[in-house]
Simulated scan of single mutants.
Amino acid sequence: MVDMAELLTDDQISSALEHLPEWRHEEGELTRSVELASFPQAIQVVNRIAEIAEQENHHPDIDVRWRNLTFHCVTHSKGGITQADVSMAQEIDSAIDAFQQS
């Protein structure tokens, strides 16, 4: 089992990205951008991610531009990507999917 707080190797990140097709590895972070149907829906997604982040005690950086969201997952205290970032990316994908299907 991978320690959630240990930095992932490039190979581990590449392997994780095989299961996160909307995400990319840029500048030491996992990054995903998405366009929602409306500004209120984008804010609902942000609010849902905030709830999850509080539960997990791991917080992504989120850029909100009208109905466009960009998520950045990185463990700042470790200076790179950890399993906690991969898990948060999966949670973000699930939240986005739930809102886009409703």
Score class of each variant (00 low, 15 high):
17 L>S: 01
26 E>P: 06
11 D>N: 10
93 D>R: 09
48 R>K: 14
91 E>L: 07
92 I>R: 01
86 V>E: 02
70 T>K: 04
80 G>L: 09
91 E>S: 15
2 V>D: 05
101 Q>K: 15
42 A>M: 08
86 V>A: 08
34 V>R: 00
97 D>W: 04
79 G>I: 06
9 T>N: 03
64 V>E: 08
44 Q>L: 10
72 H>V: 09
44 Q>N: 11
96 I>C: 06
77 S>M: 06
57 N>P: 00
97 D>I: 14
64 V>I: 15
59 H>P: 02
66 W>V: 14
55 Q>V: 12
92 I>L: 05
26 E>Q: 12
26 E>H: 03
59 H>L: 10
55 Q>F: 05
24 R>K: 13
60 P>N: 05
17 L>I: 02
61 D>K: 07
65 R>T: 14
53 A>L: 09
25 H>F: 12
74 V>T: 14
95 A>I: 04
73 C>N: 14
87 S>C: 12
8 L>N: 01
91 E>M: 12
75 T>V: 13
2 V>L: 13
64 V>R: 00
65 R>D: 14
69 L>C: 08
22 E>V: 01
84 A>W: 08
91 E>Q: 15
75 T>S: 15
70 T>G: 05
29 E>P: 00
71 F>H: 07
30 L>W: 00
17 L>Y: 02
81 I>P: 13
20 L>H: 01
13 I>N: 03
31 T>E: 13
84 A>N: 13
77 S>T: 14
42 A>R: 01
31 T>I: 15
9 T>W: 04
81 I>R: 10
83 Q>W: 09
11 D>M: 10
93 D>G: 06
74 V>H: 12
36 L>G: 11
91 E>K: 15
46 V>K: 02
15 S>I: 11
47 N>H: 09
53 A>Q: 05
